[in-house]
Nucleic acid binder design. Structure first.
Lengths: 274, 274
DNA sequence: TTGCTCCTCACGTCACGTGAGGTGGC
DNA sequence: TTGCTCCTCACGTCACGTGAGGTGGC
């Protein structure tokens, strides 16, 4: 018979762990002194302790181990459990590998541009949005092309929505891929929540679906938004994703007086590289 | 200003998380109603929330994030933190990959042999042992060769140790690699703890070093030990290790009357494949 | 007698999820 | 008035590590 310290050394485990396993009924001492409560273990119990440690090392929880040690599973049951464990570990490894890609993408991003642009990229599921929108073909991307489109369309949108008694919630823009001549179809609209609008020649109702996006929050004027895109798109590529859809801009806070207080969310729809 | 629910939806996080971040001082609402304690957030705070979520996604703890958000680290400091994070993630992936190898080795082991033989393999650091031993050349491995060596040497060892007034602690055996003719040098001895012995023509004092081993506990007679080795050595190879040293057997419980109560620890020194 | 080991609580870990129990605004 | 959202505790998670405070055997 071995006292808890000697048995622990052979384990090798800590006495605290043996007390813990005793408490859970996983491995009870062969004899407990009724006066001193000292625990005494038999050498033969090392086999069970080793089994317990084996399963723990494979990543099973103590509750699973408890039933494993009691139920004496068949070879088939044990194989199924081990295969489940294997699959779970593989998922963990995949998740950690993806996380590693994102960390490395941030390290890369530090080289090119400044600090802030990639420091608030979040991968998330974008909310679906119902947009009442108008479109305009502009000469290209960039504030010098997009800005005028907004200044033209936003008043028209306001007028038409007011006409239909619809309360706009938030301004939204998104842009199609450039055509061969460099021109771009810009979509400018308003989130209208659950309200209904009637389409007109100019006004369309579009439901932007819920998609996975890389999202950054941009604080400041619209002219500076252009400079967010380059590091953002690079980060997306570096981090094991690729663009998969049209970029959206949500004008969460639109402050004409003090553009530095404006807040724009830029969403890049993505898919994960396989 | 957004109440906690709306701000959380834009996050996207749970209100509970926002309360948690508030409590930790990571992200305090722009305004808290002094009467109702309602939290009100500004849209601009989404940028900070996004930053927080970014770092959390990379695996930083909330305490680290707190100092990151307060201290505004330089590019160099940030890079160092990210590189540390990268290294940590790589370690995690390595550890999980090794664990995966061990799980797969167990799945393989289920095919060949029965259940028990590999169910209590533990990788551990073997305790160092001081052994007073004698050697004998035997015809090969296997109980039919090793058994007689023990029956011959153990009484001689007992006699010599008694002669020197040394109290044996535990019987130990280990075996050199087979020579070309198949013969094997068997070492049979006793753990003598911290006691001293004088070497004689037959008796040697050897210190077995502390090495990493794959260890199984065998309950039962010595004749059955042979059948433990094959699956054990296969498991070691399957699981991303290889043998690296001489196998040891520790006779933890030696029961002549009822061999089924005997307990033997079989240790295979190993190195991890790189 | 002095260490050493043993004992039993019980807190702390990490980032929240999940009620319980209660209140304020449409 | 009825839901809905908000609030503040406070427990639970997982497998122990780490004291605190006290006792028994060489």
């Amino acid at each position: 018979m071995l006292n808890i310290g000697d048995f622990a050394r052979l384990g090798p485990v800590s006495p605290r762990m043996l007390r813990h396993y005793d408490q859970l009924g996983l491995l009870e001492p062969e004899y407990v002194d009724p006066v001193t409560n000292y625990r005494w273990y038999g050498v033969g119990q090392l086999a069970r302790l080793h089994q317990l440690l084996t399963f723990r090392d494979l990543g099973f929880g103590l509750d699973e181990i408890a039933s494993l040690l009691e139920q004496e599973p068949t070879v088939d049951q044990l194989r199924a459990l081990l295969q489940k464990r294997r699959d779970d570990i593989e998922s963990t490894i995949d998740a950690e590998r993806n996380r590693l890609s994102r960390v490395e993408a941030h390290i890369n991003a530090l080289e090119g541009s400044g600090l802030m642009s990639t420091q608030n990229i979040v991968i998330k599921q974008a909310q679906p949005v119902r947009v009442a929108e108008m479109t305009k073909v502009v000469g290209g991307y960039g504030y010098e092309n997009i800005g005028p489109a907004f200044r033209e369309l936003v008043p028209l949108l306001f007028a038409e929505l007011q006409n239909q008694n619809v309360e706009p919630v938030m301004c939204v823009g998104y842009y199609e891929d450039a055509r061969d001549d460099g021109s771009v179809v810009a979509h400018v609209g308003f989130d209208i929540g659950q309200q209904d609008v009637s389409a007109t020649d100019d006004l369309q109702l579009v439901e932007l679906p819920s998609v996975e996006v890389a999202s950054v929050m941009h604080k400041g004027g619209f002219e500076q938004i252009d400079r967010v895109y380059e590091p953002l798109l690079k980060w997306v590529d570096d981090s094991g994703h690729h663009r998969d859809g049209l970029c959206r801009e949500l004008y969460l806070e639109w402050n004409e007086q003090d553009p530095s207080q404006s807040v724009t969310e830029i969403q890049v729809p993505i898919a994960t590289n396989t």
